[in-house]
Amino acid sequence: MSEILKVKESLTGYWFKNNESPSEVKHEVDRTEYGELTLDNGEVLDSPCVLCHDIFCINAQIDDDVFDVLEVSQTKKLCPVDAIEIENKSIVVGDSCISCGLCVVSCPIGALKFNENNVVSANNARDSLSSVADRVSLSDFQIISYDDFEVESEKFLRSVISGILKSKSKTLTINRLITKAMSKLGVPTYLTRQGDVNLRMDAISRIGTRFYLVEIETLANLDSPRDILDDVAVFCSRYDVDKELVTGIIVLTELPNKRTEYWELIDDIERVTGVRILTVPLAGILTLLWNNSELIVDDFFLSAQNTSGRNAVEKSLGRKLNLPESCNLIEAAK
C-alpha cells in the first residue's frame, strides 16, 4: 500500500480531423513561427498543439541509469521556472518564462514558438482538430524537413541569461535548465541533492562508464576548478570510482578573459592530477539545444592554449555560429 503510483493522464487530447496524420513539419529559420505542418492529404497548416500523450513541453523525460541514488529526486517538470502548464485544455506559458526554449524544441511538431521579445507561446487553435479520448503519442514522430536555424544571437542569448539572473532563484533556475538541456542533448544529467556531503557537485552526468561531475556557475572564478578537484576527490574516494573514469565539467554563462588564472589552473590540474576539466559555455548548450544538435562534451577541453568553445559548437552545428568575434558568451574575449 505504500508504493508511489504512476500518473495515468485522464486528459483528453486532439488529433487531426478525418484521422489525417502529419507527414512533414518544417520549421522556420528562427522559430518565430509555428512549424509548417503538412498532412497526408497535402493540407498545410500551422502546427497545432494536440495535447499529445507525453506532453513533451511540460514533462521531462528522465533518463535512467545516471546515478541510481539520485533517480528519485529528479523533478519531472521540464521548465526550469515552472512557467508552462495546461489550463482549460490549452498550453499556457506564464510571465516567468525565461525564453530558454526547452519547451519549444521539445514539441515534436513545432506547436510552440518564440514570439516578439522572445516570449514563448503555444498554438492552441483547434480548428483542424477533433477531440480524442486517448491522447496520441508523438514519441516516434520524426521531423522530416528541418531548416537550419540561426536562432542564436548575442542579444537573444544575453536576454535568456538576464532572465535566469532575474528569476526567483537564479541558482535553481540555471541548474535545472542545464541538467534538462544537457539531457536533451544526449548527455543524461541529474541534479544532486543539496547538502549531500558525498555528492558535492551541482550535477552528475554519465556516458557509458564515464562520470562527468558538473559545476554550474553564473560567475567564472577560481572556485569552480577548486570545486571540481574537491568533487572528484570526494566522489572517487567515497564511491570507490577510479579517477581515470571521471571528468569535470564547468558550465559558465560567460567565459573568463584569456589572462585570468582560470585557464592556467585548468592546465595545471590536468598536468599534475590527470583530471580533465571541460569548460562548456551556456551559450553553446542553448545554441545546440535550439538547433537540435548533439553536445559532444569532450570537445570542450578549453585551456590556456584554446580559450574558445566556438569550434566545438560549430563542429556539432555543422555551420558557423551567429555570434560576433571575441564574444565572451562562447570564448575568452580579451
Binding site: 577548486r226 578537484l229 589552473l265 592546465d267 595545471d268 590540474i269 598536468r271 599534475v272 592530477t273
Partner: peptide, 18 residues
C-alpha cells in the same frame, strides 16, 4: 575551513605544475 584545505591542494598543484 574546508575551503583552506582546497586552496592548499591548489597550491600544491600549481607548485608541482609550474
Amino acid at each position: 575551513s574546508v575551503k583552506a584545505v582546497r586552496q592548499a591542494l591548489e597550491n600544491k598543484i600549481i607548485l608541482q605544475s609550474r
